[in-house]
Design a protein around this nucleic acid. Sequence first.
DNA 1: CAAAAATGGTTTGAAAGCAAACCAATTGCC
DNA 2: GGCAATTGGTTTGCTTTCAAACCATTTTTG
Lengths: 160, 160
Amino acid sequence: MSRNKTGRPARPSVQSDEIDLGPLSDLIPFNLRLAQDTALQVFVQNSRERNFRPGHFAALMIIRLNPGLTQIQLGRGISRDKSSVTPLVKGLERDGLIERRPSTSDRRSVTLQLTPKGETHLDELLVHVREHDRKVDELVGLENKPEFLRLLKKIIYELS
Amino acid sequence: MSRNKTGRPARPSVQSDEIDLGPLSDLIPFNLRLAQDTALQVFVQNSRERNFRPGHFAALMIIRLNPGLTQIQLGRGISRDKSSVTPLVKGLERDGLIERRPSTSDRRSVTLQLTPKGETHLDELLVHVREHDRKVDELVGLENKPEFLRLLKKIIYELS
DNA sequence: CAAAAATGGTTTGAAAGCAAACCAATTGCC
DNA sequence: GGCAATTGGTTTGCTTTCAAACCATTTTTG
C-alpha cells in the first residue's frame, strides 16, 4: 500500500498504466522540455531517411546569412558553446558543406562560408524544414503564433 | 547596419558582432529549443550551490505521486527511454533517496518508492522549483499562462 | 500446452552538450 | 613598447540522452 512516512494523505500504489503527474503537468519548464523534445523527435524521425543531422540546419543557415563569420559568432547564433562548435564545423567541413579559412585580420580565428555543395544541401534542407515547420505552425494556429513566439522570446531574452 | 530582415539583396560578410538569424528567429522549433535551454540553464545555475541535479526533481515527484511504480512507468512519466531510467534510478538509490524492490507480481520488474530522506529532499527541491517556476510564470504573465500551456501541450500530444 | 511474441530491465555504443584547462594571438594599459 | 588581460579555438572529461542488442520473464496464440 501507500507508504506514508510523512503525514501525507494516502495514495494508492500504481498498478494501472495511469501515471499521475500532479503539479508537473502545469509547470511551464516541464512542458517546455516535453514540447521541445517532441518537436525535435519528429524532425529527426523525418530526417532519418534523408540523412540530415539535426544540428546542421541552423548552422548552415546562419553561415549562409553571415558569410565569413567566425566560430565564436556562429556559436552565438546557434546558442552553443564554442567547444561545441569545434566538432560541429569539423563535421560540416568533412562533409564538404563549408569551408574554413584562416582570417586575414586575426590569425587566431577562422572564417566560415558555405561551399556550393553546402548551398544546395541547405536548399534541400530548407524544403524539409519548412515542411516540418508548417506542421507545427498549423498546430499552434496562425492567429496564436505571434503571441506564442513573443512569450518564448520573453523567456529566452528576459529570464536570467 | 545589416539587420536585413526581408529580401536581402546584398549580404556583407560579418565583421561586426551582429549576427543575422534571418527566418530562424520566427521558427517555433528554433525558439522552443532556445527557451527550453534558457529555462534549464537558469534552473541549473541556481541549483548549483544546493547540489540538486536537474533530472532528479521530476523523477522524485512522480515517484512520490505514484509509489510502487515500475521503471517503465517512471520513464513514461518523465518521457525518457527505459535505458535512461536505469542510471537515473541507480543514482537516486545510491543517494538514498529512493528504494527499489522487486515486484511481487512480476519478477521482471522493480517497484520504486521514496525513502524518508527522499521525501525531505523532495520537499526542499520543491521550494526551489517553485521559486524558479514563479519567475517563469511572472515573465509569461498569469493571463497568458493557460493559453501558453495549451499550445505547448498541443505540440506535445498532437505533433507526430 | 508449447512455441512465439511481447515486456521489464540492463548494457553498450554513439551523439550532443557544457565546463574547464590550455595555447596562441590580440588588445588594453601604464 | 612591454606586460597583463582578453579572446578565438581546441582538447579533455563529464553528463544526459537514445537506440539497439540482449536476457529473463510473462503473455498470447495456434
